[in-house]
Amino acid sequence: MSGLLPSEGNVNVGGDGTPRVLWLDDDETEQLISSLATETAREILSCLHESPSTATEIGEAVETSVQNVRHHLGNLIEADLVVVAGTRYSEKGREMKVYAPASAPFVVCVGGDGDREGFAEAIESFLE
Rank of each mutant, 00 (worst) to 15 (best):
A37E: 14
G3Q: 06
D113M: 04
R116T: 12
L127I: 12
L127N: 11
P105L: 11
T40N: 09
L76C: 05
D80A: 05
C47Q: 09
M96C: 04
L32C: 11
G14Q: 09
A61K: 12
L73I: 15
Q67Y: 08
E43K: 15
D16L: 12
A100P: 02
E124W: 01
F126V: 13
M1Q: 11
F126T: 12
L36D: 03
A41Q: 07
L73H: 07
S2I: 15
E63V: 13
G14W: 05
G59K: 06
S35M: 05
A102V: 10
G86Y: 08
V69I: 10
P52R: 03
G9P: 04
L5N: 09
L22P: 11
I123V: 15
V66Y: 03
Y89E: 06
V98M: 01
T87N: 08
A104T: 10
G118P: 04
G59L: 05
E124C: 11
T38R: 13
H49F: 07
V108F: 04
E124F: 00
Y89V: 03
L76K: 08
G17V: 01
I58V: 15
Q67P: 00
S65A: 04
E121H: 11
L32V: 15
P105S: 09
L5E: 07
R42W: 00
H72E: 08
Y99W: 01
T56S: 12
A85Y: 02
E63N: 13
P105C: 06
G17I: 00
V13C: 10
P105T: 03
A102N: 09
I123S: 05
R116G: 10
E63A: 14
A120R: 14
E60G: 14
D27T: 14
G111C: 02
I58P: 02
H71K: 13
R20V: 15
I58K: 06
F106R: 10
D113L: 10
G3H: 09
V83G: 01
E57S: 09
G14C: 02
D25T: 14
D25A: 11
L48T: 04
E91T: 14
I44W: 04
T87Y: 02
S53Y: 02
E63W: 07
E57P: 01
G112H: 06
G15Q: 04
V11Q: 02
A104W: 02
N12Q: 03
E124M: 04
S53D: 03
S7Y: 01
E63Y: 03
V62Q: 05
A37Y: 07
S34L: 10
A37L: 08
A102R: 05
L32Y: 06
L36Q: 09
K92V: 00
T64W: 01
F126W: 12
E121D: 15
L127T: 14
T56P: 00
T64A: 10
V13N: 07
R116H: 13
N10R: 14
Y89L: 03
T38N: 07
A122N: 08
S34E: 13
T18R: 11
R42V: 12
T18C: 08
V110T: 08
R94E: 12
L5K: 15
I44G: 12
R116Y: 10
T87K: 03
E43G: 05
T56H: 03
Y89I: 00
H71I: 06
E30C: 09
A120G: 10
S2P: 07
G17D: 11
T87W: 00
E128W: 00
